[in-house]
C-alpha cells in the first residue's frame, strides 16, 4: 500500500504549477517512476498533482520552424511508433522503443522519462545515501557493477534515461513552465551532475513543469541512432548505451554529437570522440580512435571496468553502421 497523500487533477497548467510549488507536492505524469519511489519510501509526498487533465501536453506536432513539438505527456510508446520521429529522428524512435516493457511504454511519458530518478540500488534501497541527504555514496565501495565510469563526484549513479541521450544528441530543448513564466532548457543542460548538486537530477525548480520537448529541424545529411546493451535480451536499463547524431557532407562528418547512457550520472557527452570525428571520414582507423577517445577519461570502480571495452565496442559498431554507404 502506498503512503497516504492528497490528489488533485487541475484542468489548467497555471493551477498545476501553483500546486506543484507547494512543499511536499510531487507531480504525477505517467506515474511509473513516482509510484515506485513512493512505495519504496525513496521520498515521501503529502500531495500529488496530476498532469493528466492537461490534454494540451499530449501528442506530436510539427513546429513552424520545421521541427517537432512533443508534448510532455506523450507516451514512450507513441514516440516509438510515430512515423515523423522514425523517419527524421531515428535515434529518438530507437531509444523510445528500447525503454522498459510494452506496458511501461504505454504508461510512461517523455517528460517523466527525462525527469526520472536514478535506479541505483542503494538510492532505491534503505540507505541514507548522499543523494538522499546523507553523507556517503554506498556504491563507491560497494556493489557497483552498474554504476558510473565517468562524471562520478561523491555520487556514482548512472542516469537511467534512454531518451535523454538521444534528445541531447539531436539538439532538443524542453520548455519549463512555472507560475512565474516559462523558459527553455537544452536537454544537454537539463540534468544536474553531482559535482553541482548531488541531491537533484534536473535543473527544474520546484513548481516548474516540463511541458514539451522541441526537436530542431533535422539538418540535411543527419544520420542518427541509439543502441543500448542490457544484461538480458528482454527489457532492462542500459548497462551501456550510445546515441549518435552525425551530420554528413558526402563522406565527411561535419558535426558529430555523441551522448552515452549507462556511463555517468547525467547523459554523458563524449566530447573527445566528437573531436576525433568532426571533419573526418569514418574510415576504420578514425572509428577506432573515436571509440577509444569516448572512454579515455573513464575511472571505473571496483566492479564496472567491463564497461570501458563494452562502450568502445558499442561505439565502434554504431559508427560503422551509421557510416555504411558513405
Amino acid at each position: 500500500m502506498l503512503p497516504k497523500f492528497t490528489y488533485s487533477r487541475p484542468g489548467s497548467l497555471v493551477q498545476v504549477a501553483n500546486l506543484a510549488a507547494r512543499p511536499g507536492t510531487r507531480v504525477h505524469a505517467g506515474g511509473t517512476d513516482l509510484l515506485g519511489c513512493l512505495r519504496d519510501g525513496v521520498f515521501g509526498a503529502e500531495s500529488l498533482v496530476s498532469l493528466s487533465g492537461l490534454s494540451d501536453l499530449r501528442g506530436v506536432t510539427p513546429t513552424s520552424g520545421g521541427g517537432l513539438r512533443i508534448g510532455a505527456l506523450t507516451t514512450i510508446a507513441e514516440i516509438a511508433a510515430n512515423d515523423a520521429i522514425s523517419d527524421r529522428y531515428p535515434a529518438l524512435a530507437q531509444a523510445a522503443a528500447s525503454v522498459a516493457s510494452p506496458q511501461l511504454r504505454n504508461q510512461g511519458t517523455i517528460g517523466g522519462n527525462l525527469c526520472q530518478k536514478p535506479r541505483c540500488w542503494y538510492y532505491r534501497g534503505d540507505f541514507h545515501c548522499l543523494r538522499k541527504g546523507g553523507d556517503t555514496c554506498y556504491a563507491f565501495d560497494g556493489e557497483n557493477q552498474y554504476h558510473c565510469i565517468l562524471g562520478g563526484d561523491g555520487c556514482y549513479i548512472v542516469h537511467p534515461s534512454d531518451t535523454a541521450p538521444a534528445l541531447a544528441a539531436l539538439g532538443a530543448r524542453v520548455t519549463a513552465v512555472s507560475a512565474g513564466g516559462r523558459r527553455t532548457i537544452a536537454v544537454e543542460k537539463l540534468h544536474v551532475p553531482p559535482s553541482t548538486d548531488p541531491q537533484r537530477e534536473t535543473a527544474l525548480e520546484p513548481g516548474e513543469i516540463l511541458t514539451e520537448v522541441i526537436l530542431p529541424p533535422p539538418p540535411s545529411g543527419l544520420r542518427s541512432s541509439y543502441r543500448k546493451i542490457r544484461e538480458r535480451a528482454s527489457w532492462d536499463f542500459a548497462v551501456v548505451g550510445v546515441a549518435l547524431a552525425l551530420v554528413f557532407d558526402g563522406h565527411t562528418v561535419t558535426t558529430a554529437n555523441i551522448f552515452l547512457s549507462g556511463a555517468a550520472p547525467v547523459p554523458w557527452r563524449a566530447r573527445q570522440a566528437e573531436e576525433v570525428l568532426n571533419g573526418s571520414n569514418l574510415d576504420g582507423a578514425t572509428v577506432e580512435r573515436a571509440a577509444h577517445a569516448a572512454v579515455a577519461d573513464a575511472e571505473p570502480l571496483a566492479h564496472n571496468a567491463y564497461k570501458v571495452p563494452l562502450f568502445a565496442g558499442l561505439i565502434k559498431e554504431q559508427l560503422t553502421t551509421l557510416g555504411g554507404g558513405t
Binding site: 490528489y7 487533477r9 509510484l35 515506485g36 510508446a77 510494452p102 511501461l104
Partner: peptide
C-alpha cells in the same frame, strides 16, 4: 511494475494495474 501479472487494458493498451492509481 516488473512482472506483468496485473496487466489490464486501458483504452485497449496493456498497462500495469499495480502502477496505475485508480483515480488516473
Amino acid at each position: 511494475g516488473e512482472c506483468g501479472a496485473c496487466t489490464v487494458l486501458m483504452d485497449g493498451s496493456p498497462r500495469y494495474a499495480c502502477m496505475t492509481l485508480a483515480l488516473e
